[in-house]
Computed example of a mutant assay.
Amino acid sequence: MYAQHCSALLSIAQHCSALLSIAQDSISTLMRRNIMEKHWLTVAEAAEFLRLGRSTVYRLLREGKLPAHKVGRTWRFDPEELNVWIRTDKAKKFPVADQKGGANG
């Protein structure tokens, strides 16, 4: 009887493991597809998007204050992440709009 229960539990565990593997593969595929379909901004495009100079964008990158992703030797920006950054208290403490005559200038 004990051997039958162990065998049944082993079978269930193997099925769960297989399902987990399939789910992980599916999630990985969806994430790769999403990354590939997303429009990533260059430094120049991010600067225009934020209404900042390119040198200010590079300074914020060096200071670790701007959400960005390094791809090889270049930086790429997710517009959605930049929008979130703009709306956070952290970004509001940095007077972005003042730099290029934006909302306050």
Score class of each variant (00 low, 15 high):
Tyr2Thr: 06
Tyr2Val: 06
Ala3Ile: 03
Gln4Arg: 15
His5Met: 08
His5Gln: 15
Leu10His: 10
Ser11Cys: 11
Ile12Glu: 14
Ile12Arg: 15
Ala13Gln: 11
Ala18Lys: 12
Leu19Val: 10
Leu19Thr: 02
Leu20Asp: 08
Ser21Val: 07
Ala23Cys: 12
Ala23Tyr: 10
Ala23His: 13
Asp25Glu: 15
Ser26Pro: 01
Ile27Val: 13
Thr29Ile: 11
Leu30Arg: 02
Leu30Asn: 02
Met31Val: 08
Asn34Phe: 11
Ile35Val: 07
Met36Leu: 09
Glu37Phe: 02
Lys38Gln: 15
His39Ser: 13
Ala44Cys: 05
Ala44Arg: 07
Glu45Gly: 04
Ala47Cys: 03
Ala47Met: 07
Glu48Trp: 01
Phe49Glu: 02
Arg51Ala: 05
Leu52Gln: 08
Gly53Ile: 03
Arg54Lys: 13
Thr56Arg: 04
Tyr58Arg: 00
Arg59Pro: 00
Arg59Gly: 00
Leu60Pro: 00
Leu61Pro: 00
Arg62Pro: 00
Arg62Lys: 10
Gly64Met: 15
Gly64Arg: 10
Gly64Ser: 09
Lys65Arg: 10
Ala68Glu: 00
Gly72His: 06
Trp75His: 06
Trp75Glu: 01
Trp75Phe: 11
Arg76Tyr: 13
Asp78Met: 11
Asp78Gly: 05
Glu81Thr: 02
Ile86Ala: 05
Ile86Tyr: 04
Arg87Lys: 11
Lys90Leu: 11
Lys90Val: 03
Lys93Cys: 04
Val96Trp: 12
Ala97Pro: 02
Gln99Asp: 09
Lys100Asn: 05
Gly101Lys: 08
